[in-house]
Design a protein around this nucleic acid. Structure first.
Length: 722
RNA sequence: GGGCGAUUAGCUCAGUUGGUAGAGCAAUCCGUUUACACCGGAAAGGUCGGGGGUUCAAGUCCCUCAUCGCCCACCA
C-alpha cells in the first residue's frame, strides 16, 4: 500500500500536483480527447462559456460557487463521453475597471485621467486589468476548474474587438443603432453616461418645497430640486383636474426667477397625479427623463441649466457656476425672501446613484448612441429586438432555472427603453464611427480617406459581453468551433445579471446568428456571510477563497457550495459546512485505505462472482448510479451531491464496510472473495460518481487504486458508470 | 405603485408528478472495537407562518391574511 494513505488526507500537498497532471494530459481540450480516442469524434457536444469575471480585482466566493457548479457539470458530461468544452475568459468591465484604477491612481500619485494622453492612459488601465486577470486565472486553477486554456478569451482582445465592430456595423447599417440627443443618466463623478440598469437607488430624506414662480403666477408647484426650476418651460396638470382648467394652454412670462427669466406654458398631461403635492408639476425637460418625455408630447422647448460637473450654467452670481446643492439653497433663500415659499416638508426620496462610482446621477441632454429595441427589423420578419429577446424564452427553447425567473425576465422586457450604449470613458471598445466635417462613416476598420476622426466614446461593457457565447468561438469568422459548439449548452450566471447579460446575449445571438445562445440558463444566487449579509468591502466581512482552500481544501469548499443549494437560491457561507466536507474527504481517504488493505489479493482481471447478499447490495449501487445520473442530467447537483455523501458515508462506510470486517475474516472463500470484489467495485464507482464534485481527492485516490482492464489512468476521462 | 419569491427541527436548507415529514451542522447520552476520534453507536427534536377551500388523501393545488426578502418603476 502507498505510504501516503497511512496519514490523514492533506489537500494542500495534493491539489496543485493533481491540477498539473490534468493540464499536462491536455484533456481539458476536447480536440485532444478526440485525438487520443477518449471521446468519439461525432459524440454529442456539451459546451459552456464561463461568465467572464471583471478584471477589477480578484475572485471571491461568488466565483467559487460559479466555478463549482460549472466544473461539476462539465466533468460529468466529459466522463459521459460528450465532446465537452468549457471556455475561460475575463471581462474588461469598462467603467468598473477604469474607476477602480483611477481611484488607486489618485491615492498613489494624486493624478487623474486628465494628466495623460488617451493612449497612454488606456494602456495604464489595461496593464492594471491584465495583472488582475493573471491573478484570477491562477485562482481558477486553484478551484480545480477543467477549463480549456487553449481557448481563453478576453472581452477586449483582438478577436473580440473584431466581433464588437462587426456587430456594431451590422446594427448601424440596419438602423438599430442610432445617435440621438436625449436626456441620459449622467454620472458627474465618473464623467460618463450610464445605462438605466446601472443606476442604484438609495433612499434618503429630502425636502419637498412648495412655491410659486412669481407672485402673479396662478399655480403652486412642489419640487425637491428648486435649482432645476430655472430650466422649467412648462407646468403640467392633470387634464381632469378641475382646479386648473382655466389655465391650460396659456403661457406666462416670469421676468425674474432668482435672476432668470422663464416662459411657462400650462399643459395637460395624464401622467400627472392630482393627489401629489399641489397636483401641478414644473416641467424641466433638460434635467428629468420623465419631463423630457412630456416635453416631446407637448412640443416644449428644452433649456439646459446644469452642466457635466453638476454646476449651474445660468443666472447671476447667486447661482451661476455654483454646485446644484448650493444653488438649491440660494433659490430657497430667494423664494422665502420674496414670500413665494409656501411649504417645506421632509419626505423620503430615492436618489439615483451610479452603480460603479457612487456619484449622484444628473439627468442631462446629451448626444449619445442608442440601440433601438422597438424598431421592426426587416431581416427578422419585422420583429423587434424586444421580441427577439422574448421569443426563445417564451417558447422554452431556452430554459431558465429556476423557472419563476422567466416572469421577471418578461416583466423587464416589457418596461425596456432604448439602450444607451456610449460611454465617455477611455477603457473599452471605441465606437467604430468616424467623422469628417458633416460626413459620418461607420466601418469595421477605419476609413482610408484622410481627415476622419474617430468618435471618442467607448461602448458599454455589456455590448461586448452580449456577444460572448459566440465571440469566444471565433465569430464573425466561420470557425469549426462556432459550428460545433454554438448554441452552447449551459450558462451559469448569477440572477443579478439576468437583464444586464442574459437578455443581451439572447438579443445579440438571435439578431446576429439567428439562433439561441444557450439551451439552459442555470441562475445561481448570491453568497452571503453566515448571518445572511451580503459580502462587501465596507462591511469587511469578505472571505478569501484561498484562505478557505488552504485550511480545508478545494474539494470541501466545492461541496459546501453545492450540497443543498438549489438554483436561484442565495447561500449563507458557513465555514462549519466546509469543515464538515473536509471530514468527508478524510472519510473517503480512510475508506480507500481499508478497501485496499483488504483487497490486496483480488485479481481484477479474473471473473469473480458475487454471492446473493452482495448482489443485493450491488443492486442498490446501481439504483444510486441511476438516481445520481438522472439528477445531474436535470442539473440537480444539490441533490446528487447530498445523496452521494449520504451513501458513501452512511451506507458504504457505516454498514457495508463494518459488516465486511467479519465476512472477510470468515473461512468461506466464496463469501470473502465476493465481498472483496464488492468493496473494490463500490469504491471505484464512488470515486467516479464523486469526481465531478470533489475532483482532487478522487483523482488522487484513483491513481492509487489498482485498475482493471479498460479503466483509464486518469479518472477525469474515465467512463461514467451506468 | 407594478412584479417575483420566502415562511418546514436550535441554525442552514432539501422535499421532483399531492400518499400521514428529511439532510448537514449544533446540542444530549454512551463508546477509545487495528480504515478513520477529521471516529462509531443511541436517543432527542417539527400541529411544515395563521385561517379557509378542493380531495379518499395537502408541506405539496386554490383563496385569504400576516411577516420577511428581492427586482422593476421613481412622487415631481
Amino acid at each position: 500500500m502507498e505510504d501516503k494513505l497511512s496519514k490523514p488526507y492533506n489537500p494542500a500537498e495534493t491539489e496543485a500536483r493533481i491540477y498539473k497532471k490534468w493540464e499536462d494530459s491536455g484533456y481539458f481540450n476536447p480536440d485532444v480527447c478526440i485525438e487520443k480516442g477518449v471521446t468519439g469524434a461525432t459524440a454529442p457536444t456539451f459546451s459552456v462559456v464561463l461568465p467572464p469575471p471583471n478584471v477589477t480585482g480578484r475572485l471571491h466566493l461568488g466565483h467559487a460557487l460559479e466555478h463549482s457548479l460549472q466544473d461539476t457539470a462539465v466533468r460529468f458530461e466529459r466522463m459521459r463521453g460528450k465532446r465537452t468544452v468549457w471556455i475561460p475568459g475575463t471581462d474588461h468591465a469598462a467603467i468598473a475597471t477604469q474607476s477602480r484604477f483611477e481611484k488607486e491612481l489618485q491615492k498613489e500619485s494624486g493624478k487623474s485621467r486628465h494628466d495623460f494622453p488617451r493612449d497612454e492612459f488606456f494602456n495604464m488601465i489595461n496593464e492594471f486589468g491584465l495583472k488582475n486577470q493573471q491573478d484570477m486565472l491562477g485562482q481558477m486553477r486553484l478551484l480545480g476548474s477543467s477549463l480549456d486554456w487553449s481557448r481563453e478569451a478576453f472581452t477586449l482582445d483582438k478577436e473580440r474587438s473584431l466581433a464588437v465592430r462587426t456587430a456594431f456595423k451590422k446594427m448601424y447599417d440596419e438602423g438599430l443603432i442610432y445617435r440621438g440627443f436625449r436626456v441620459v443618466n449622467w454620472d458627474p463623478k465618473g464623467q460618463t453616461t450610464i445605462a438605466d440598469d446601472e443606476i442604484v437607488y438609495e433612499e434618503r430624506e429630502a425636502k419637498l418645497y412648495t412655491f410659486k414662480y412669481s407672485k402673479d403666477f396662478p399655480i403652486s408647484i412642489s419640487t425637491t430640486r428648486p435649482e432645476t426650476k430655472v430650466g422649467d418651460t412648462a407646468v403640467a396638470v392633470n387634464p381632469k383636474d378641475a382646479r386648473y382648467q382655466e389655465y391650460i394652454g396659456k403661457t406666462y412670462e416670469i421676468k425674474d426667477f432668482c435672476g432668470v427669466s422663464l416662459n411657462i406654458k400650462i399643459v395637460a398631461d395624464d401622467s400627472v397625479e392630482p393627489e401629489f403635492g399641489t397636483g401641478a408639476l414644473g416641467v424641466t425637460p433638460a434635467h428629468s427623463q420623465i419631463d423630457a418625455d412630456m416635453a416631446t408630447r407637448h412640443d416644449l422647448p428644452t433649456v439646459q441649466v446644469i452642466n457635466e460637473f453638476a454646476k449651474m450654467t445660468v443666472g447671476d452670481e447667486r447661482i451661476l457656476g455654483k454646485k446644484t446643492t448650493e444653488a438649491r439653497e440660494a433659490i430657497v433663500t430667494w423664494l422665502s425672501e420674496q414670500g413665494l415659499l409656501e411649504k417645506e416638508e421632509v419626505i423620503k426620496q430615492n436618489v439615483s446613484t451610479a452603480e460603479r462610482t457612487g456619484g449622484i446621477v444628473e439627468p442631462l441632454p446629451k448626444l449619445q448612441w442608442f440601440i433601438n429595441v422597438n424598431k421592426a427589423i426587416p431581416s427578422k420578419n419585422n420583429k423587434t429586438l424586444k421580441e427577439l429577446m422574448r421569443g426563445p424564452i417564451s417558447s422554452r427553447e431556452v430554459t431558465i432555472l429556476p423557472d419563476h425567473f422567466e416572469k421577471i425576465y418578461f416583466n423587464w422586457i416589457d418596461n425596456l427603453r432604448d439602450w444607451c450604449i456610449s460611454r465617455q470613458i477611455i477603457y473599452g471598445h471605441q465606437i467604430p464611427v468616424w467623422y469628417r466635417n458633416d460626413e459620418i462613416y461607420c466601418g469595421i476598420e477605419a476609413p482610408e480617406d484622410p481627415g476622419f476622426k474617430q468618435d471618442p466614446d467607448t461602448l458599454d461593457t455589456w455590448f461586448s459581453s452580449g456577444l460572448w457565447t459566440f465571440s469566444t468561438l471565433g465569430w464573425p469568422k466561420k470557425t469549426i468551433d462556432l459550428e460545433t459548439y454554438h448554441p452552447t449548452t449551459f450558462m451559469n450566471p448569477g440572477y443579478e445579471i439576468l437583464f444586464f447579460w442574459v437578455a443581451r446575449m439572447v438579443m445579440m445571438s438571435e439578431y446576429l446568428l439567428g439562433v439561441i445562445p444557450f439551451k439552459t440558463v442555470y441562475l445561481h444566487g448570491i453568497v452571503r456571510d453566515a448571518k445572511g449579509k451580503k459580502f462587501s468591502k465596507s462591511a469587511k466581512n469578505g472571505i478569501e477563497p484561498e484562505e478557505v482552500i488552504k485550511q480545508f481544501g478545494t474539494d470541501a469548499l466545492r461541496m459546501s457550495m453545492i450540497v443543498g443549494i438549489g438554483p436561484g437560491n442565495d447561500l449563507s457561507f458557513d465555514i462549519q459546512k466546509v469543515k464538515a466536507y473536509s471530514k468527508f474527504a478524510n472519510k473517503l481517504w480512510n475508506i480507500t485505505r481499508f478497501t485496499l488493505d483488504n483487497t490486496k489479493d483480488l485479481d481484477l482481471n479474473k471473473n469473480n462472482t458475487l454471492v446473493s447478499e452482495d448482489i443485493a447490495i450491488w443492486k442498490n449501487v446501481e439504483a444510486l448510479i441511476q438516481k445520481i445520473t438522472t439528477d445531474m442530467e436535470s442539473y440537480k447537483f444539490y441533490l446528487a451531491a447530498e445523496d452521494l455523501y449520504h451513501y458513501i458515508w452512511h451506507e458504504f462506510a457505516d454498514k457495508i464496510i463494518e459488516e465486511s470486517k467479519l465476512l472477510l475474516q470468515g473461512v468461506d472463500i466464496a463469501i470473502s472473495n465476493s465481498r472483496k470484489k464488492l468493496l473494490r467495485d463500490i469504491l471505484a464507482t464512488s470515486l467516479k460518481l464523486l469526481h465531478p464534485f470533489m475532483p482532487f481527492i478522487t483523482e488522487e485516490l484513483w491513481s492509487i487504486l489498482p485498475r482493471g482492464q479498460g479503466e483509464s489512468e486518469i479518472l477525469m476521462i474515465e467512463k461514467w458508470p451506468h
